[in-house]
Amino acid sequence: MDEQLTSANYLASLTAALTEYQDFPQITAKIQAVKETVLAYQHRQLPAQPLPPLEFPVDLTFDLLESHPDILTVESRLNDLRECVIENFGVWHLFSQPWVEDLATYLGDRPTVQLMAGNGLLASQIQTVHATDNLDWQGQDITQPQPWTTIEQLDALAAVKKYYQTTAVFILEWSPDGVELDAEILQFLRDQQWSGEFLVIGEANGATNSARFWHMADYQVIPVLNRQHQQFDFINDQVFIVH
């Protein structure tokens, strides 16, 4: 994606694609879903529905190549979504209102601390979640912190050491690829024989977290937290419980 592409320009390109492909609902449904996601973030809201897979049907793409030679460009533009929201809104993990509702039900009234909370989108939606982040990602991918809620400025390991005796759940959401602080957190919790739940949202052995962490971790997918959290692009991030 062009570094200069703003969310406004991205939305304009989606609107144009909706007009061009108005006779092909299999395509326009995906374009509209991406458009609604960007519009939601523009208004500091979460998307009302999870994103569908953004890849176009192969047979339809092949059939339309002659009459619509830009179809592969349009498909590629949809897959720029994650980069668009990273650069414009400081959002790496894309989730929806239905998924947050599932998570809120799962957490109940248990005190929860979110580590590496970024702009605090998740904590802004669930009252029992306390957001922490050292905000050292400022300037990464040209982003600037614009918190949706109060963020306690703490390094993730420092936050764990501060709160492990008083919190029931830690959430680590999209920890940066290759940064081994996640492994240090897991080792600390094991050393303390901590009895709470450590929830990790990311792509196992992929785009998030360190290789050391995935090697150390005993992790399982939580079905109830993944039914509204499905892969939509090339990154298969999931919700895990880690021991």
Rank of each mutant, 00 (worst) to 15 (best):
E3R: 13
L5I: 06
L5M: 09
A8K: 00
A8T: 07
N9L: 10
N9R: 09
L11Q: 05
S13T: 10
A16V: 05
A16F: 08
A16N: 08
A17N: 07
E20Q: 12
Y21W: 12
Q22M: 10
D23T: 07
Q26N: 04
I27V: 02
T28Q: 02
I31K: 00
I31P: 04
Q32N: 12
Q32A: 07
A33I: 04
E36A: 09
E36L: 10
T37F: 02
Y41M: 03
Y41T: 07
H43E: 15
R44C: 11
R44S: 14
Q45F: 04
L46G: 13
L46C: 12
P47N: 09
P47H: 03
P47I: 08
A48P: 06
L51D: 01
L54M: 01
F56Y: 05
D59R: 10
T61A: 06
F62E: 15
F62G: 00
L64N: 05
L65P: 03
P69I: 01
V74I: 13
V74K: 01
R77L: 15
L78R: 01
N79K: 11
N79V: 06
R82Q: 08
R82A: 00
R82H: 08
C84N: 12
E87K: 06
H93N: 14
L94Q: 08
L94S: 04
F95I: 10
Q97K: 09
W99N: 05
V100I: 13
E101Y: 05
E101W: 03
E101I: 11
L103R: 00
L103Y: 10
L103N: 08
A104R: 10
T105I: 13
R110S: 13
P111I: 12
T112E: 03
Q114E: 15
L115G: 05
M116L: 14
L121E: 15
A123K: 02
Q127Y: 06
H130K: 09
T132L: 05
T132A: 03
D133L: 05
D133R: 00
N134G: 07
N134H: 11
Q138P: 01
D141L: 14
D141V: 13
I142W: 10
T143Y: 07
Q146E: 15
Q146M: 14
Q146G: 11
P147E: 15
P147C: 14
W148N: 07
T149L: 05
T150S: 12
I151H: 03
L154I: 00
A156C: 02
A159K: 04
V160F: 11
V160N: 06
K162T: 15
Y163F: 15
T166H: 14
V169E: 15
I171W: 03
L172S: 13
W174M: 08
D177Y: 15
G178Q: 11
E180Y: 09
E180R: 00
E184H: 07
E184V: 02
I185G: 03
I185E: 01
I185H: 06
R190N: 15
R190K: 14
W194A: 11
L199M: 10
V200E: 09
E203F: 03
G206R: 00
A207E: 11
A207S: 15
N209V: 04
A211F: 06
R212N: 15
H215W: 07
A217P: 01
Q220Y: 01
I222A: 00
V224M: 04
N226K: 00
R227W: 08
Q228Y: 07
H229L: 11
Q230Y: 09
Q231P: 06
F234Q: 08
I235M: 10
N236Q: 11
Q238F: 05
F240R: 00
I241V: 14
I241L: 09
V242L: 04
